[in-house]
């Protein structure tokens, strides 16, 4: 079982921090401009709450994430509250993307996205890979998918 690159935690934590800041800021704006009075410490409380839960969630999420290339399928395990295990048979892979968003690029990370014809196709994406790792995974998945040689996709 492979884990994600540890640096993905940084990304997710940063995201949680941003969310917390935005929420705190909005509450702050509420304190300043709302017609009714909101306690002055409200922004700190809400922001802090979002910060703690967000960061905790990000860390737990990292701990829960696993993926594995098995003989004939890609296997993913993830989820904090709802644990989700997904089996994607190589035969069913339609195409594989490796993608790098701007923030991912800053962090030196990339993700691989696997598409099937299933109704939940876009569900299968593996974040937190090194750029080389993502390309390598894409390459391997592609090769395995070709070797598995499906029927017509659906």
């Amino acid at each position: 079982m492979n884990r994600l690159h540890p640096r993905i935690r940084l990304l997710w934590v940063a995201r949680a921090v941003v969310v917390a800041l935005v929420v705190g800021g909005l509450t702050g704006a509420g304190v300043l401009f709302a017609p009714f009075s909101i306690p002055i410490y409200a922004p700190v409380v809400t922001g802090g709450f979002f910060l703690v839960t967000g960061v905790g969630f990000a860390l737990l999420r990292y701990r829960a994430w696993r993926y594995e290339l098995r003989d004939d399928s890609l296997y993913l395990q993830r989820g904090v509250f709802t644990k989700v295990n997904t089996v994607v048979p190589f035969v069913r892979i339609q195409h594989v993307d490796s993608a790098r968003g701007p923030i991912e690029r800053l962090a030196g990370l990339a993700s691989t996205i696997v598409y099937t014809a299933g109704s939940r196709g876009a569900d299968v994406s593996i974040p937190g890979l090194t750029p080389d790792g993502a390309e390598d995974l894409q390459e391997r998945l592609k090769r395995l998918a070709i070797r598995a040689e499906g029927d017509d996709a659906v």
């Binding site: 989820g79 509250f81 709802t82 644990k83 989700v84 295990n85 997904t86 089996v87 994607v88 048979p89 069913r92 099937t116 014809a117 299933g118 109704s119 939940r120 196709g121 569900d123 299968v124 029927d151 659906v154």
Partner: peptide, 13 residues
Amino acid sequence: YYRIQTIIDTRTI
């Protein structure tokens, strides 16, 4: 069986 695309196993809390 041959129509299955992915198999998803979920467990909520």
